[in-house]
């Protein structure tokens, strides 16, 4: 029965070994999928390359259905899985800032680490920026505290907010993903006729 570490089925000394191994697999998949290149990533916003959307949505679908399946088979207790808490205002503003940072920087944190690994100076500068941004936030925290904790829904699940079961939600999510895959494939074909093919560095 999982999850293994919260249920004490793996000795805690193994925590960091597991973290390192999971990280290696994560970094390998990100790099091999093409996320070490910012121009490859931002293609998703201009229609010339939707690789980010394909990898991201496929991963959500696989993990989501996998969790439901593991739960159904009794291999995992879904109630013990960490649910990211919801603070509406803080998260909306945070996500808008991240969206702006994404377009300016061309990376997100995880992908910038793989960019550094293959020698991208822009990825190093982006990661340096992350450090500075988090430092700024921490220093300004007293002024932001009430906003940061305000409008809390606690560990709200999609079921709590929309009233649809996990099974129904994942079904809808899969349908949306398939439509998105098809439509973006059409868009990409059209855009690639007009946008000059870009050279990867």
């Amino acid at each position: 029965m999982g999850p293994l570490i919260p249920l004490g089925q793996i000795a805690s000394g193994w925590d960091f070994v597991i973290a390192l191994l999971i990280g290696i697999a994560f970094g390998f998949i990100l790099e091999a999928s093409g996320f070490s290149s910012s121009r490859n990533i931002t293609g998703v916003f201009y229609g010339y390359n939707f690789v980010v959307l394909r990898v991201f949505l496929t991963a959500v679908v696989v993990a989501m259905i996998g969790l439901l399946y593991f739960n159904y088979m009794g291999w995992i207790d879904l109630n013990l899985i960490y649910v990211v808490p919801t603070y509406i205002n803080s998260m909306v503003i945070g996500s808008v800032l991240m969206g702006l940072g994404f377009i300016l920087g061309g990376f997100c944190p995880g992908t910038s680490y793989t960019g550094i690994a293959i020698g991208k100076i822009d990825a190093m500068v982006f990661t340096g920026g992350l450090f500075l941004g988090i430092f700024l936030f921490s220093e300004l925290f007293p002024a932001l505290e009430s906003f940061y904790y305000g409008d809390s829904l606690g560990s709200a699940t999609i079921e709590d907010v929309f009233g649809i079961s996990n099974e129904k939600f994942s079904f809808i999510f899969v349908i949306i993903a398939i439509i998105v895959f098809y439509v973006t494939w059409l868009i990409e074909k059209r855009v690639r006729k007009t946008v000059n093919p870009y050279k990867f560095e």
Binding site: P85, G94, F107, P109, G129, G133
Partner: peptide, 24 residues
């Protein structure tokens, strides 16, 4: 590119704290 990457990193870092995490 370097200036944009630095600014982007700062905004992403700041936003990730408000957002309780980043894209991953």
């Amino acid at each position: 590119r370097i200036i944009a990457a630095g600014l982007g990193g700062i905004l992403f870092g700041f936003g990730s704290q408000l957002g309780r995490g980043c894209s991953s």
